[in-house]
């Protein structure tokens, strides 16, 4: 399984990866539009380099091991390939944008300005690699400082661990090793610059310790809906059973009531007759 390791400390912010990505994937030049987020990603920019103080952080699709987008797409337009890349089949898509809502990293972008819009995101140059045109993604290929490298996920995690051990400047955490079930794009960073890896998780609420019923950070998104989805058949059949039972009981009771009434009536009539007699 292939992966990308980005070493934030090595990045010089030259944005060569952005350019290479645009060339390889034939992306438009693009214009800044109102609906874009400030992180530089757009339907024409599948990767971007963000500047934070003196470090540069490259942003792209994380290619989760258990992708939220794959699990929520109602038509299966997004799916994970054997190589580890999460790719998009635009012939299937119907444009519901559930993937954009569900992605814990806020990655997929939409072609808002088009009357025939599609979802756009990094696909790890999957098509080109599968066709044998290139042997690694354009971004890792062009990186002048080897800040972002491509390889087998296990090897890259070993390499990341080696780097963290060898140099005390590194933060002892591999981003993407376990987060939301693990990702194929992993990051290591220096101690000074912690990453805002899961954009919406802890930082926005101020109190990272409180979980408020949120699932664990290592739990993948497909897991969160699993219980609800699993309880669908029992709920369906259970409701049917309850309703049928209720109907049966109510009908029976009404019948008995009616029978009682009739019996009473007959009794009353009889009584009346007796009384009269």
């Amino acid at each position: 399984m292939k992966a990308i390791l980005t070493d934030v400390t090595k990045c010089i912010g030259c944005a060569a990866c952005v350019t290479a990505c645009k060339e390889t994937n034939n992306l438009d030049k693009g214009k800044p539009r109102e609906w874009q987020k400030s992180d530089g990603l757009s339907s024409d920019n599948w990767t971007s380099v963000l500047r934070k103080n003196d470090t540069y952080i490259r942003k792209q699709c994380r290619h989760c091991l258990e992708p939220a987008c794959e699990s929520v797409c109602p038509v299966g337009a997004l799916h994970r390939t054997e190589s580890g890349a999460v790719v998009y089949d635009e012939d299937k898509c119907l444009g519901c944008r559930y993937c954009m809502m569900a992605c814990p990293y806020g990655i997929p972008r939409y072609e808002w300005d088009s009357p025939v819009p599609y979802i756009r995101k990094c696909i790890m140059c999957h098509d080109n690699i599968a066709a044998g045109i290139i042997d690694q993604p354009a971004c890792t290929n062009i990186c002048p400082t080897q800040a972002t490298i491509y390889g087998n996920r296990d090897d890259l995690i070993k390499e990341a661990k080696r780097r963290i051990k060898s140099d005390p400047k590194y933060l002892d955490h591999i981003y993407g090793e376990t987060e939301v079930g693990g990702t194929n794009v992993i990051y290591i960073t220096s101690k000074d610059e912690k990453l805002d890896f899961l954009t919406y998780y802890t930082n926005r609420l101020g109190d990272p310790e409180k979980k408020y019923g949120y699932p664990d950070i290592t739990q993948s998104i497909p897991e969160t809906t699993k219980i609800a989805m699993k309880s669908v058949p029992p709920a369906f059949l259970g409701m049917g059973a309850i309703m049928t039972g209720a109907y049966w009981i109510v009908q029976r009771r009404m019948k008995i009531e009616k029978a009682n009434k009739d019996a009473n009536k007959v009794n009353n009539d009889k009584n009346n007759e007796v009384g009269n007699g």
Binding site: C73, P74, V75, E111, M229
Partner: peptide, 26 residues
Amino acid sequence: FDLGLPWNIWHMMVFWNPHSPLFEVG
């Protein structure tokens, strides 16, 4: 109106992804 590609709405009947809550709702 909300779907980007509303003419593809029938895809939900053809391409199945039973893991998706939206698929089930649809």
